[in-house]
Amino acid sequence: MKLSREEVLHIARLARLGLSDEEVETVREQLSNILENFEVLQTVDTDDVPPTAQSIHLSNVLRKDEECASFTQEEILANAPQKEDGFFRVRAVLE
C-alpha cells in the first residue's frame, strides 16, 4: 500500500494540518509502511463479530439537570491567544 503525494495532501487537508514539502514526503513513506503492517487485519475473520467501541459496558449515563457553579468569563478567556471585549478574537471567517 503506497500512498500518493495527492492522497497525503488530501488527508492533511481533512485534518487541517499544514505540512512542509519535506514532511509530506516523510509522512508518505512512513504512513505507507505503517499501513502495510495493518494489512494483516484483513486476514482476520470477523463475520458476525460486533465492533467494540470501548471496554466498559456502560451506556446512557444520566445525571440530574441541575444548576451548578461554572467558570467565570475571565477564567475561560485567560488562555486565549487573542481576546477583545470579553470575546475570543479570530481571523475573519468570511473574507
Partner: peptide, 13 residues
C-alpha cells in the same frame, strides 16, 4: 480500517 479494528478488538477481549 477503523470498523475492522473494532471488530478484532472484540475478538481480543
Amino acid at each position: 480500517y477503523y470498523l475492522k479494528a473494532q471488530k478484532v478488538r472484540t475478538l481480543i477481549r
